[in-house]
Design a binder for these strands. Structure first.
Lengths: 142, 142
DNA sequence: CAAATATAATTGATATATCAAATAAAAAAA
DNA sequence: TTTTTTTATTTGATATATCAATTATATTTG
């Protein structure tokens, strides 16, 4: 019999990595040259316009330095536009371009489909359970 | 009310990244200059001597190319020894050095303590639940 | 057996992760 | 207001992630 306490983190890691691969494969069917994290950044900027790089970094669990470079790339790919922010000249104004919005709208149905497939046969109750247990762990280690 | 299906993967990602940071912090109290993945590699080689780089890569969910570079580093740090394998000259014989074993033995109590803290107040039953739900997801997306 | 195919590991290129140090601007304190 | 401290971002250095191409050896096939 397995001892879950020794393997749970392995399973968590496996799940998130597998889901990322699964998602990426499906994304590439409708948009080329996009990564999971780029999609997440687009999504957050769409839902909460005006986010700073630092705020985005926190949302996607990355370092500010990584964000700088990721935003650079996304500007080069014309997904985003970076301009001066008059109110606070330390931060930038980061906006989604029409191309960025188009990419996002192409991905939306894929995202929905991904979740649907991933959660097939899993009840709402189970997801709530899962969420709750993970939050307990998060509380313990914070 | 939150909709878990839209946030569960976010929570999973947050949990695993937080746990990695938490573990690393605690590792560095007893051993300097070790990463979570290096510890995992040492652990696997200790439990299953004779693993090839490819096999290790699969166990830690990494690419062969990454493993090549990680093993290089670990050899430089004198955690591992890499030598020719007579039976199959395509693969290497990778062995833990005394220093590697020492590091591992220093980390063992820390690992146990990490798990204990992370799972405080979580029942065996809940861990089994968690494991089961994650495996359902894994099955769905594989 | 020789030729074709498969496997293990490496290398190169590019992106990302992480930490520390640097820069520039804003906010707080003197 | 000047000085000090804090904040947002960037840059440099090093490690890791990922993909494609390469190399060397093993295995399979004809």
């Amino acid at each position: 019999m397995k001892i879950p306490s020794k393997t749970v983190f392995y399973t968590i890691e496996k799940t998130i990595k597998s889901y990322r691969k699964f998602s990426k494969r499906n994304f590439l069917k409708v948009v080329d040259d996009i990564t999971i994290d780029q999609k997440l950044i687009l999504q957050y900027l769409n839902d909460f316009p005006g986010l700073s790089q630092k705020e985005i970094a926190e949302l996607v669990f990355k370092d500010n330095a990584s964000l700088t470079r990721m935003i650079d790339l996304m500007v080069n790919k014309n997904f985003l536009k970076r301009s001066m922010n008059i109110e606070d000249r330390r931060r930038f104004k980061i906006e989604i371009t029409p191309k960025g919005k188009e990419v996002l709208s192409k991905l939306e149905p894929v995202i929905a489909e991904n979740r649907k497939k991933a959660f097939a046969g899993i009840t709402e109750q189970e997801l709530i359970q899962l969420d709750m247990i993970l939050n307990k762990i998060l509380f313990n280690i914070k």
